[in-house]
Amino acid sequence: MASLIPCPHCGTRPRQEFSVRGDATPVRPAPMAADEVWNDYMHVRANPRGRIREHWQHIAGCRRWLVVERDNFTHEVFSVSDASLEQGGAR
């Protein structure tokens, strides 16, 4: 993981200020969605090598939930955006 993360609200900050939740791709299904849909959301991960989207929280800064788009092999960070601006991926 890169040592610096550019927070869209606070600017570039050390990685220690951030806390990771996990994969930002799965979208929470509707409460009464089929079991298979819930299983996919809860348990199944694409887990690609390369470009991924991940949820991080800037816990020692603005405390906003962020979507970090980065490479999980080279650790390059491509973009960081506020999770509430994401289509569907927001919580």
Binding site: M1, S3, R15, Q16, G22, D23, N47, I52, N72, F73
Partner: peptide
């Protein structure tokens, strides 16, 4: 573990 998705065989200083 470091806690983030990674395929790199090296970790973070934190």
């Amino acid at each position: 573990i470091d806690g983030y998705s990674s395929y790199a065989q090296r970790g973070n200083l934190a």
